[in-house]
Write a protein that binds this DNA or RNA. Structure first.
Length: 574
DNA sequence: GCCGTTTTCGGCCCGACTGTTTTCAGTCG
């Protein structure tokens, strides 16, 4: 089995967990966790580095010892140190760390005092009330473990960004009405526009005696209050989403917002920079000795460490700090930069609105153009169009364009890429269109080689313009199909065609890291709603968030072009 | 275990809340 970066990272995480349970030096533990993170976020395959004999110690956080272990794992698939740890502690014990409230010390106590090694054994011990008898544990701790076990058993999955928004935004709006409250911002991974969020972090600034925390804990959608203090509270909503709220004074707003936006890796890196300048950075401000020198705004925090403002979507410690230092941060795309949408559906296939309704809704958004791209006949479940039906729609669009003012409908199709890489409609009709979007909707399970060849062949087609939802994944529902995305990106470059960033909340496909790769290769990305109704244009903001996480600027995105500039770009593949 | 304009030792990001304890360890973010 080939070893991937993620496999080595998992081994290092497990070593860290086990060392922690053994009460090893905390910094030694941190070194393993740090290395795991580095490997996960590394843009290249560490196995290839080993095979080429590259010096692994040049990677940050990897010294002689870890370099040796990486080499060992790549070559043997095992790590002798982990095997040794497994002889001292049962492998299943690290699962227990997933229970909120159980950290390394308590897991160690449970194992040594009660011989608890698995979730099932923990469950039994809770039921028999054996936990509360342990020194350092008590009745309440036992009850919390019982609750946590129940929640863990039901579901602890992450929430899609768009779903989290439906809970976070009304809650934030409600908090803004509390007396004394000045600002309420949803921070955390939500603000960084990650495609899924594990919890919601809400930052509040308020006057000293504002009742905001009491009101927060009285929100009527709360199922359980986990903790409740004057500046910090955690609750679980009835929908099982955890919400953490923090209140700080207005002068700490920027420092707190920076801190609670994360990511953790980014924050650590910024604090290190602060340390080099003998500054202490915490959620209350930036301090030189005891004096606050910054923190009212995020800009002031960055300025204190000698950097320009870094947009939240870039804060993953994936090179943004280096780019900021060099003054070459991207000027990220904004929703208002979009001039149109090139992937939408109407009642003619599986959409819910007429062409005219879609056109009017697009015009209201300030769009110049809207491409109508129904499914093709192969996708019978979506009432896909055959050549005759498509020809009829082409005529209808011509008639509508003669009437419409301030918006132009473009003629397109979302044509199925068949198993052999051919397209689901004949050339004569594809040739009459303004653009042809190719999409995979079947045979997801092909081998990497066959799936990649299939898509590469489709992109060879003279009329092919844009590859829809390139990875095919549905978040938390369907894995991406197995393809060599770098070859597809290079093919797009060679053929002069484009890749889509589909803004449907379930898709958000292309992934952020591939947006970055496409940008590096000079391939334009098209951010599309894939709207099936006039409401779906709202999803474009999630696509923009994903694009920003992929470092995309206005110039990297096809549909920021005016109609006049767009037309020749659509024709260049034909 | 890593790292170095404090460079081979002695540091390593920082603070809030809870429960069990009676001043603090453990956990979490």
């Amino acid at each position: 089995m080939p070893i991937h970066n993620a496999d080595i990272a998992a081994i290092f995480e497990e070593i860290a967990d086990l060392l922690e349970i053994e009460s090893a030096n905390v910094f030694r533990v941190r070194a393993y966790r740090n290395a795991a993170r580095i490997l996960q976020e590394l843009g290249k395959d560490v196995r290839a580095m080993v095979e080429k004999g590259e010096d692994l110690t040049r990677l940050p956080g990897i010294g002689d010892d870890l370099a040796h272990k990486i080499k060992e794992i790549v070559e043997t698939g095992h790590c002798a140190m982990l095997d040794k740890l497994h002889k001292q502690l049962p492998p299943t014990i690290t699962e227990l760390l997933a229970i909120p409230g159980l950290g390394p010390k308590r897991v160690s106590a449970l194992y040594h005092e009660l011989d608890i090694q698995t979730m099932e054994q923990l469950q039994r011990a809770v039921r028999d009330h054996r936990i509360q008898a342990l020194p350092g544990f008590g009745e309440k701790t036992e009850m919390r473990i019982a609750d946590a076990l129940a929640i863990h058993a039901s579901n602890t999955s992450r929430f899609k960004l768009a779903i989290a928004a439906q809970y976070a935004e009304p809650l934030a709006a409600w908090l803004r009405t509390v007396p004394g409250v000045q600002q309420v911002v949803v921070a955390g991974s939500y603000r960084r526009a990650r495609e899924t969020v594990g919890d919601i972090d809400i930052l509040i600034t308020a006057t000293e005696h504002s009742p905001v925390m009491v009101r927060f804990c009285g929100y009527d959608e709360i199922a359980e209050i986990l903790s409740h203090g004057p500046t910090r509270s955690s609750v679980i909503l009835k929908c099982k989403l955890q919400v953490d709220a923090r209140v700080v004074a207005p002068e700490s707003y920027g420092a707190a917002l920076h801190y609670f936006t994360g990511s953790k890796a980014h924050n650590i890196a910024i604090r290190r920079l602060g340390q080099e300048k003998r500054l202490k950075i915490n959620e209350y401000g930036v301090f030189k000795d005891q004096t606050r020198i910054a923190g009212e705004t995020e800009e002031s925090v960055y300025q204190a460490v000698g950097l320009p403002f870094i947009p939240p979507e870039l804060r993953e410690n994936r090179g943004e700090i280096e780019a900021a230092r060099k003054g070459c941060l991207p000027k990220l795309i904004e929703l208002s930069d979009l001039k149109g949408d090139l992937h939408t559906h109407s009642k003619a296939s599986d959409g819910h609105a007429t062409l005219k309704e879609m056109a009017q809704a697009a015009k209201q958004r300030g769009f110049e153009y809207l491409a109508v791209t129904e499914h093709s006949s192969r996708l019978t479940i979506a009432r896909g169009l055959d050549s005759v039906q498509l020809a009829k729609q082409i005529d209808e669009i011509d008639r509508l364009n003669a009437q419409l003012e301030g918006i132009t409908l473009l003629k397109g199709i979302e044509v199925d890429i068949l198993e052999d890489g051919s397209l689901d409609l004949p050339d004569w009709i594809l040739g009459k269109l303004d653009l042809v979007i190719g999409a995979v909707h079947s045979h997801f399970g092909l081998s990497r080689a066959r799936q990649t060849e299939r898509i590469l062949k489709a992109m060879e087609h003279p009329h092919f313009t844009l590859l829809a939802h390139p990875s095919g994944r549905l978040i938390a529902k369907r894995e991406p199909y197995d393809i060599d995305m770098m070859r597809i990106i290079r093919q797009a470059k060679a053929r002069g065609c484009y890749l889509e960033l589909n803004a449907t909340p379930d898709r958000l496909d292309l992934l952020d890291t591939y947006c970055q790769a496409a940008k590096a290769e000079g391939v334009l990305i098209c951010i599309d709603s894939d709207a099936h109704s006039v409401l779906d244009f709202d999803n474009l903001r999630f696509g923009i968030g994903q694009a920003r996480r992929g470092w995309l600027e206005k110039s990297d995105v096809l549909n920021t072009r005016s109609l006049k500039a767009l037309r020749p770009l659509l024709k260049q593949t034909m």
